[in-house]
């Protein structure tokens, strides 16, 4: 009776994106490297990068489905700001990630709320992303050991498959992460997240590889929870710009509240 409700509240939107696009924004093919070097390289390439994009998030669950239009800004992996533009009922709702902190702005009550640590595993707007996707991705190289589990052809495409195992002390929720990356352009194709017991929790798949803002990116990302295969969240980029004029001061609480 008194058990604490499992919050499906959801925050941090695309923040998952930080991680997903981590590999997407990568450099040209590299050869004969260790897994860690590859991912570290990608990670470093990301730092200092700024971006701005427009994205549609479509969520389908057992009970409802909905679509949100959003604008997203990011600076490196530590800063991002997401603002909902449609539907009108939720326009202005915004999320700010600054370092390890996540804030939300609720236009209806005109208040900002800092997401407490206990809700980091909650999802945003009922999507299948969690806050943790965001905050933890920025330390991917610090928290995991990397290993190339497979190198060769899968369905005619030359790929690497990595296994990411968290360090024993690392504050991460996953027991094991598997990731497939295309060798030719370093584009990710899928990421599988497993819990401590090795059970698959969710799968992310990437598609719609195209050049946006001068870079090759997967324009669509799909998240499917393993325990509810009929549910999914999809993210589709419509517009993406890189290396725009943004600095850390843009990612402020004041800016979180301001409507465009």
């Amino acid at each position: 009776m008194y058990r604490v409700y499992r919050y499906r509240i959801a925050w941090v939107p695309l923040l998952g994106l930080a991680g997903s696009f981590l590999l997407a924004l990568a450099a040209p093919p590299i050869h004969a490297q260790t897994a860690r070097e590859i991912i570290d390289r990608v990670d470093r390439l990301l730092r200092g990068e700024s971006s701005r994009g427009r994205v549609t998030m479509e969520i389908t669950t057992e009970h409802w489905s909905r679509s949100l239009e959003m604008e997203v800004w990011s600076l490196g992996v530590d800063h991002s700001l997401v603002r909902v533009e449609a539907p009108a009922r939720e326009a202005g709702t915004a999320t700010l990630k600054a370092g390890q902190e996540v804030w939300n702005y609720l236009p209806r009550v005109d208040r900002t709320i800092k997401v407490p640590p206990s809700l980091m595993m909650g999802s945003w707007m009922g999507s299948h992303f969690t806050n943790d996707d965001l905050v933890k991705e920025s330390r991917i190289v610090d928290d995991y050991d990397f290993e190339i589990a497979f190198e060769g052809e899968r369905e005619g495409v030359d790929v690497w498959e990595f296994v990411l195992t968290p360090h024993p002390e690392a504050p991460v929720v996953w027991g094991r992460v598997e990731e497939q990356v295309r060798k030719a352009d370093l584009m990710p194709t899928w990421i599988r997240y497993h819990d401590d017991d090795g059970k698959l929790v969710r799968t992310m798949t990437f598609s719609g590889y195209q050049t946006m803002g001068g870079r090759l990116v997967p324009a669509t990302m799909l998240v499917i929870p393993a325990d509810k295969p009929d549910e999914l969240t999809s993210l589709t980029y419509h517009k993406l710009e890189f290396d725009i004029a943004l600095d850390e001061s843009f990612f402020s609480l004041r800016n979180l509240r301001s409507r465009r």
């Binding site: 919050y7 499906r8 509240i9 669950t61 409802w64 909905r66 609720l106 707007m125």
Partner: peptide
């Protein structure tokens, strides 16, 4: 703040 049954917040 509470998740609503229509998926909104």
């Amino acid at each position: 703040v509470a998740p609503a049954v229509d998926g909104s917040m």
